[in-house]
């Protein structure tokens, strides 16, 4: 691997991965840039926090969007979530990786998040078209990762593979890692849509008949594009509060992600196509 990049999604797993990297390379600076794929539908607060973090730590951040997709007017409302995700996230990511010639990309995915992630390698080989072939993965024994690549191939590296959600929160608390405030409860304008709370982060969210934004104390367990990321009602305003709530939670983390429910094996399908 010659040209690595760290995928930075602004979420809590990214925060932990970034923190670990800062510690690992200390006192040197990170020897690679960060890459954020901006669909333009991220929460405003995420973008603000991202820029603040970059300034605070002196990072080299690259931001890429799918300009063609934007020009075509693709939004979470004009297209169903799987097409939208494919175009605005996956395609943008693939084109960014290709145009910079990155041959290794660090990601914060964990095996405990979802079934098909449970079989993901720590070093996950991608073809020159960024495809993932679950039947043709390299065996990973001990901690001996095989990062050798042919021209055009790349590898996605998941250093947090074996962390659980509890491990993540425990580490955030122990290391006092700053997080986007969206993880903590506050009064936010939301509408109830298909049984989930969707935040009205700006005036681009088309309201359906009968939908009236109301202020509720909510927080997010996972962060993505605001129209596709459901909030949970909560009063947990601190890390201990969040943990307390998590311990009694009966709904798993990714259920707030609307894109996972599209179809059976949806995540595996997205990953084969190059989704992180």
């Amino acid at each position: 691997m010659r040209n690595p990049v760290m995928l930075y999604s602004v979420g809590k797993d990214s925060a932990v991965m970034l923190h670990l990297a800062m510690k690992a390379f200390y006192p040197s600076q990170l020897p690679f840039p960060l890459l954020h794929i901006d669909t333009t539908w991220k929460f405003k607060e995420m973008i603000r926090f991202r820029d603040e973090t970059v300034a605070r730590l002196g990072l080299n951040l690259l931001v890429r969007r799918n300009e063609a997709g934007l020009a075509e007017g693709i939004t979470p409302f004009t297209h169903n979530s799987s097409i939208y995700t494919q175009i605005m996230k996956t395609e943008a990511l693939k084109s960014a990786l290709s145009s910079f010639g990155f041959d290794a990309a660090f990601g914060g995915a964990r095996r405990d998040e979802e079934k098909s992630r449970a079989k993901e390698r720590v070093f996950s080989l991608r073809s020159d078209s960024h495809g993932w072939d679950p039947k043709n993965q390299r065996p990973e024994l001990w901690t001996l990762y095989n990062g050798r690549l042919k021209a055009g191939e790349s590898v996605r590296v998941f250093p947090l593979s074996n962390w659980t959600e509890t491990d993540i929160w425990q580490y955030i608390m122990r290391e006092r890692i700053p997080l986007v405030s969206l993880y903590f409860a506050a009064k936010r304008p939301v509408v109830e849509r298909d049984g989930q709370w969707i935040m009205v982060d700006d005036d681009r969210l088309p309201l359906r008949p009968g939908e009236v934004p109301e202020m509720r104390s909510v927080r997010f367990r996972t962060l993505g594009c605001y129209p596709l990321t459901a909030a949970t009602e909560s009063t947990a305003a601190t890390v201990p509060d969040v943990l307390q709530e998590m311990l009694v939670a009966r709904t798993s983390e990714r259920s707030g992600r609307l894109i996972d429910h599209d179809e059976a094996a949806s995540m595996e399908k997205k990953k084969r196509e190059g989704y992180f």
């Binding site: 405990d112 079934k115 098909s116 679950p134 059976a264 094996a265």
Partner: peptide, 24 residues
């Protein structure tokens, strides 16, 4: 079915890869 994550495994009813699970 909880554990056999990959679609082809669900169809064939066998586990073809290593899956990691976490509990405490």
């Amino acid at each position: 079915l909880l554990v056999d994550g990959l679609a082809s495994e669900r169809e064939q009813g066998i586990t073809i890869d290593v899956a990691y699970r976490f509990f405490a």
